[in-house]
């Protein structure tokens, strides 16, 4: 229990300044990238940049880099469970084949069936 306290680490303002500048540059990058047609990779790039930004905030602004292992474990557990929620639900949708053998996504199909919706 007591070893946690020794890890109180004071991050100097210069580090914060470097981080905020990086974050602003990345914000510009993500806006710029959105105006380039990358097809389906637009979303991948956008999420990758957002993840980098979030990671910087967590590691430095939130001091996770200097926190005990337990805090890091909690963060990883949170990400893992979020991935479970998203991934396992999507595992249903992306493998779905309806009773007529139509593969998902079926946005067009649902539109043809208004009567059945009651």
């Amino acid at each position: 229990m007591s070893e946690q306290e020794h890890s109180e680490h004071i991050v100097p303002p210069s580090t914060y300044l470097a981080i905020i500048l990086t974050l602003l540059v990345l914000t510009g990058t993500t806006v710029g990238a959105a105006f380039v047609n990358l097809g389906r990779f637009n979303i991948v790039v956008a999420l990758a940049i957002a993840t980098v930004k979030a990671t910087l905030v967590v590691l430095f602004f939130m001091h996770a880099k200097y926190s005990p292992k337990r805090t890091k474990l909690i963060i990883l557990a949170g990400i893992f469970w979020l991935a479970l929620l998203l991934g396992m639900t999507l595992s249903d949708y992306i493998t779905r084949v309806d009773y007529r053998g139509v593969r998902f996504p079926i946005s067009q199909v649902t539109q043809q069936l208004p009567a059945q919706r009651g």
Binding site: T30, A34, F35, N42, I43
Partner: peptide
């Protein structure tokens, strides 16, 4: 921000 504002901006 990217999820809501930046869909298909190109």
């Amino acid at each position: 921000f990217p999820l809501l504002y930046l869909i298909d901006r190109h």
